[in-house]
Design a protein around this nucleic acid. Structure first.
Length: 426
RNA sequence: GGCGGGUUGCCCGAGUGGCCAAUGGGAGCGGACUGUAAAUCCGUCGGCUUAGCCUUCGAAGGUUCGAAUCCUUCACCCGCCA
């Protein structure tokens, strides 16, 4: 059996770690209980969080015990890291709901391997459970005494904000203490000895290590994943300015699948080892194929396939693939049968219209392909609007009777990739 | 608590009384070229019942024929001093 650390290095999942020799020895001794935290700052996890799960899954496959912390408490405070302004505080009820939704995101990622391969299922914890009843006195006396302000100020996340125009509130300044305390609680409650996270969390991870050493006298470990960016320096997981969510209610499996398919060549090759759990030889072969025949987009297809299956399941993957073939294939739309068209457009997104038919511009807006009528008109003017694959000349025209495709559908497209269906109502 | 600087469209950043829906850059979007890539070039980039109209320049008032630009108050941010 190969060393899990070796695998993680091969895949580029480790950017930082505490003493690696010690960590390697620790992991070799037997099952290690490790944790990673996610703050509920949105209703769903997104593609950027997926990197953490690739690491968590690799450790799980190696026989270790994952603990997933959802930050019901820290989500109320706000991590100053990686941002140049203060966070807007969210309401407690909202954060509580997000905690639940995020747990649902995690299920297929860590529970399925447990069910299907007999690996250890994740333990879920919420730091609100031990943070909420902490009194200000206890917090300051029992925990705060262990922190030196000079060290806290030196953390990148804090100093960056101190040097920014926005500054930093005492609330967010305290964040690292809360996260450090989480590590200590999990060490006590579950024997956690390894925390993983993004390398932008490094200051918070080491704060926890210091606290555990100081108060428990134990040496515990941390591992940081690299920050994944596109070739031009953007954060991973944005498409058309929107976030690529894992929750199917926020982003359809079809759109999720399309996102990976559209990743550019450079990024696809770079990301493949990170996100693809296939054998090393297969990954290398896919990259080699991409160099030779980039148009085949082998890495993109592998990413789309593996990740859609991982996050949404086999059935959703099959539907997303079929929809993509139908909408982007070379076949004439009119030659598609009603069933295929219906399945494809349902995946892609559609609206139903009854009664009097709106203009094409209005339909573009109703399907969400554009956000305003002005934008619809502009798109038509720019030659970027298509009805049934034919460029629209007049946005104020109403589609004719002959435009309806089998099953009672109109296919609207904006630009090359954004497609939506309009279905005739009763 | 005192003094000074600041708050402009998704972001950065010009603009100090009319020519400002607001220069420029970036992001985004569309077109051409391609491979549902990248780079490049061109166009576009508040909203609407779009030759016109409406709402924007931290918030609220005020001066003026007319304000993002002047005055007052408030909020927030940064710096120096106490």
């Amino acid at each position: 059996m190969t060393d899990v650390i070796d695998e993680l290095h091969r895949r580029g999942l480790i950017a930082l770690s505490t003493d690696e020799a010690a960590l390697r020895a620790h992991l070799a001794e037997g099952p290690v209980t490790y944790y990673c935290g996610f703050d509920p700052t949105a209703p769903s996890l997104h593609v950027g969080n997926l990197v953490q799960f690739m690491l968590l899954r690799a450790l799980q496959r190696a026989g270790h015990q994952p603990v997933v912390l959802v930050g019901g408490a820290t989500g109320l405070i706000g991590d100053p890291g990686g941002r140049n302004s203060e966070r807007q505080l969210n309401d407690r009820e909202v954060v509580a709901e997000w905690v639940e939704r995020i747990r649902r995101n995690v299920r297929p990622l860590l529970e399925r391997p447990a069910e299907e391969s007999g690996l250890r299922p994740p333990i879920y914890v919420n730091n609100l459970d031990w943070t909420e009843q902490l009194s200000a006195i206890d917090f300051l006396r029992a925990i705060g005494k262990n922190f030196r302000v000079s060290q806290m100020l030196a953390k990148e996340a804090v100093s960056a904000r101190l040097n920014s125009e926005a500054g930093i509130s005492y609330t967010e300044f305290s964040y690292q203490i809360l996260q450090a305390n989480d590590y200590r609680e999990l060490y006590r409650r579950h024997g956690v000895t390894l925390q993983t996270g993004g390398s932008d969390q490094w200051g918070n991870l080491t704060a926890g290590i210091d606290l555990v050493r100081r108060t428990e006298g134990a040496g515990v470990h941390a591992m940081g994943t690299p920050l994944i960016t596109t070739a031009d320096g953007q954060k991973i997981g944005k498409t058309q300015g929107a976030t690529v969510w894992l929750d199917p209610e926020l982003m359809s499996p079809y759109a999720f699948h399309q996102y990976w398919l559209n990743v550019d060549d450079v990024d696809a090759r770079a990301w493949l080892p990170l996100f693809c759990e296939r054998p090393a030889e297969d990954v290398a072969a896919l990259i080699a194929e991409s160099e030779e025949r980039p148009a085949a987009r082998a890495p993109q297809r592998a990413l789309a396939e593996d990740l859609t299956r991982l996050v949404h399941g086999d059935q959703e993957l099959a539907q997303a693939e079929a929809a993509g073939r139908a909408l982007f294939g070379r076949d004439d739309l009119a030659s598609l049968d009603a069933g295929t068209l219906t399945a494809a457009l349902t995946e892609a997104g559609s609206v139903t219209v009854d009664g009097e038919l709106p203009t094409i511009a209005q339909l573009l807006q109703q399907t969400g392909l554009v956000s305003s009528l002005s934008e619809a008109r502009r798109t038509v003017k720019e030659g970027g609007a298509y009805l049934n694959n034919e460029r629209v000349a007049d946005g104020d025209a109403v589609p004719g009777e002959d435009a309806w495709l089998p099953g009672g559908w109109l296919v609207l497209r904006r630009g090359k990739r954004a497609v939506a269906g309009v279905r005739r109502g009763a």
